[in-house]
Simulated assay, not measured.
Amino acid sequence: MTRATEAAAFFGITATIYLALLFQWIPIPLPETVQEFTLPVLPWWALVSFGAYSLGNIGYHVMTFRDCPEAYHELQTQIAQAQNDLRSKGISI
Results as ranks from 00 to 15, higher is better:
residue 51 G to V: 10
residue 51 G to E: 03
residue 68 C to F: 11
residue 75 L to Q: 12
residue 24 Q to T: 01
residue 31 P to Q: 01
residue 19 L to S: 02
residue 71 A to C: 10
residue 74 E to L: 09
residue 54 S to H: 04
residue 69 P to K: 13
residue 56 G to H: 04
residue 49 S to H: 05
residue 42 L to G: 02
residue 14 T to F: 14
residue 53 Y to M: 14
residue 39 L to V: 03
residue 66 R to Q: 10
residue 73 H to A: 14
residue 48 V to T: 14
residue 66 R to H: 11
residue 35 Q to I: 01
residue 71 A to L: 14
residue 58 I to P: 08
residue 59 G to M: 08
residue 81 Q to N: 06
residue 64 T to Q: 11
residue 46 A to Y: 08
residue 14 T to H: 03
residue 51 G to Q: 07
residue 82 A to H: 07
residue 70 E to W: 04
residue 47 L to P: 04
residue 69 P to M: 08
residue 80 A to T: 13
residue 65 F to G: 15
residue 30 L to D: 00
residue 59 G to T: 09
residue 73 H to W: 04
residue 41 V to A: 06
residue 36 E to Y: 15
residue 32 E to A: 14
residue 53 Y to D: 01
residue 37 F to Q: 06
residue 30 L to G: 03
residue 84 N to W: 10
residue 23 F to C: 08
residue 50 F to G: 06
residue 63 M to P: 00
residue 83 Q to S: 10
residue 37 F to E: 09
residue 61 H to R: 15
residue 24 Q to V: 03
residue 12 G to T: 05
residue 57 N to P: 00
residue 42 L to A: 15
residue 70 E to G: 12
residue 16 T to F: 00
residue 29 P to A: 09
residue 78 Q to L: 06
residue 82 A to W: 08
residue 54 S to C: 04
residue 78 Q to E: 13
residue 80 A to V: 15
residue 19 L to W: 02
residue 78 Q to D: 05
residue 70 E to A: 13
residue 75 L to F: 12
residue 47 L to G: 14
residue 81 Q to P: 04
residue 21 L to N: 01
residue 29 P to V: 04
residue 49 S to M: 07
residue 29 P to K: 12
residue 14 T to Q: 05
residue 23 F to N: 03
residue 66 R to T: 13
residue 86 L to V: 05
residue 50 F to W: 07
residue 41 V to D: 06
residue 83 Q to K: 13
residue 36 E to D: 07
residue 60 Y to K: 14
residue 61 H to L: 07
residue 11 F to W: 12
residue 82 A to I: 03
residue 12 G to W: 03
residue 13 I to P: 05
residue 41 V to Q: 09
residue 81 Q to I: 05
residue 32 E to Q: 11
residue 12 G to P: 08
residue 63 M to A: 14
residue 36 E to Q: 14
residue 28 I to T: 07
residue 33 T to N: 05
residue 51 G to L: 12
residue 57 N to S: 13
residue 47 L to H: 03
residue 63 M to F: 11
residue 15 A to Q: 01
residue 78 Q to C: 07
residue 32 E to V: 02
residue 26 I to W: 01
residue 40 P to W: 00
residue 83 Q to E: 12
residue 41 V to M: 08
residue 63 M to Y: 14
residue 75 L to V: 04
residue 15 A to L: 11
residue 74 E to Q: 07
residue 38 T to I: 10
residue 78 Q to K: 08
residue 45 W to C: 11
residue 77 T to W: 15
residue 79 I to E: 13
residue 33 T to V: 10
residue 60 Y to L: 11
residue 26 I to Y: 00
residue 36 E to H: 12
residue 16 T to N: 02
residue 53 Y to K: 08
residue 84 N to Q: 12
residue 71 A to W: 13
residue 78 Q to W: 11
residue 81 Q to M: 09
residue 42 L to E: 05
residue 84 N to A: 15
residue 45 W to R: 11
residue 24 Q to M: 02
residue 25 W to Q: 00
residue 75 L to C: 13
residue 33 T to Y: 15
residue 41 V to Y: 03
residue 10 F to H: 06
residue 29 P to E: 00
residue 13 I to F: 09
residue 50 F to R: 07
residue 81 Q to D: 10
residue 13 I to S: 02
residue 16 T to K: 00
residue 52 A to F: 12
residue 55 L to F: 07
residue 14 T to P: 01
